[in-house]
């Protein structure tokens, strides 16, 4: 493996990790606060991507500059969070917080099935491409390797901002502290006047918007087609499970681990690239069932 290929694999891995992290962080945030694994998270990612492509296509057709693709990403993410995430929490999840875990899984799985068809109905089965954002940023040359600015700089930067921003939000703002308090002990939080329903709704909207943002960010780098949601939910689950469910910083680390593992596999043994994330997860879970950063919970008897 020469230096060029090594750098390409490294850059691919970083760009990919940044994307996966922005999706996985929403999944792990929702789980950390609400103790629900949102299987429909992958669909929200896919809808975010489709929505960005459509909106960007629309404004470009109106003659606006390609740079405006970026605000469209944020618009898409917010739309996904508010218009899809909000109703899911409000109409469905709210009914099942006290139900067994299996039922909760079935409910979000059902939402997943519904959203997969919604995508097909709205956007059809033909793949979409919309790389204006990627092209608008141009290329950069690093150690003799040409790479897109969008993937090498923008994506990791966004991931970093998300990580630091979320940390700051949860630890140093009133709202974040309210969320953490509700996570620790829902009843105690309610008894001091925190509206747990609102906290859960807000958390879910933010988590869903993060999935949508992941899709929006991914849209210029890949073709958008049915089934991408299913791949992403399993992959982002692999990331958060390897880190330990609910571990935000841990998810950043494992996203990098899995992203790099996958991108190096692409250059070394391409057939196995899809398997690498799962192999990493299985190996980690064999050694540490609670994930790299999770702590084992002993049942009180």
């Amino acid at each position: 493996m020469n230096l060029t290929i090594f750098l390409l694999a490294l850059f691919d891995g970083i760009a990919y990790a940044a994307l996966v992290f922005s999706v996985a962080v929403g999944l792990t945030l929702i789980f950390g606060v609400m103790r629900i694994l949102n299987v429909a998270h992958g669909s929200l990612y896919a809808v975010g991507a489709y929505l960005t492509v459509s909106l960007t296509g629309y404004i470009l057709a109106l003659g606006f500059a390609p740079v405006l693709a970026f605000p469209m990403m944020i618009v898409s993410a917010v739309l996904v969070g508010v218009l899809i995430g909000g109703p899911i929490e409000w109409l469905l999840l709210r009914r099942i917080y006290n139900k067994p875990e299996v039922l909760q899984l079935l409910v979000t799985f059902a939402v997943f099935m519904i959203l997969e068809d919604v995508q097909r109905l709205v956007w059809g089965t033909q793949p979409y491409f919309q790389a204006s954002a990627l092209q608008a940023m141009g290329m950069i040359r690093v150690f003799g390797v040409n790479y897109t600015v969008y993937q090498l700089i923008i994506l990791p930067l966004v991931a970093l901002v998300l990580l630091v921003g979320l940390r700051f939000f949860l630890r140093h703002t009133i709202l974040g502290k309210l969320i953490l308090a509700t996570t620790e002990d829902r009843e105690a939080a309610q008894s001091i006047g925190i509206d747990a329903d609102k906290v859960f709704l807000l958390t879910f909207i933010v988590g869903a918007a993060l999935a949508g943002l992941g899709g929006a960010l991914a849209s210029p780098t890949t073709s958008i087609l049915p089934g991408m949601g299913a791949d992403m939910i399993v992959l982002s689950f692999a990331v958060v499970a390897t880190a330990g469910l609910g571990q935000i910083e841990g998810a950043a680390f494992t996203a990098l681990l899995i992203g790099l593992g996958r991108s190096f596999a692409v250059y070394v043994w391409p057939e196995t690239a899809v398997l690498v994330p799962y192999l990493i997860m299985l190996i980690v879970l064999l050694v540490r069932p609670e994930g790299l950063f999770g702590s084992p919970t002993a049942r009180k008897i």
Partner: peptide, 10 residues
């Protein structure tokens, strides 16, 4: 079809 299944499952 998936949508009907999902709705029914809910």
């Amino acid at each position: 079809w998936q949508m009907l299944l999902g709705g029914f499952l809910l």
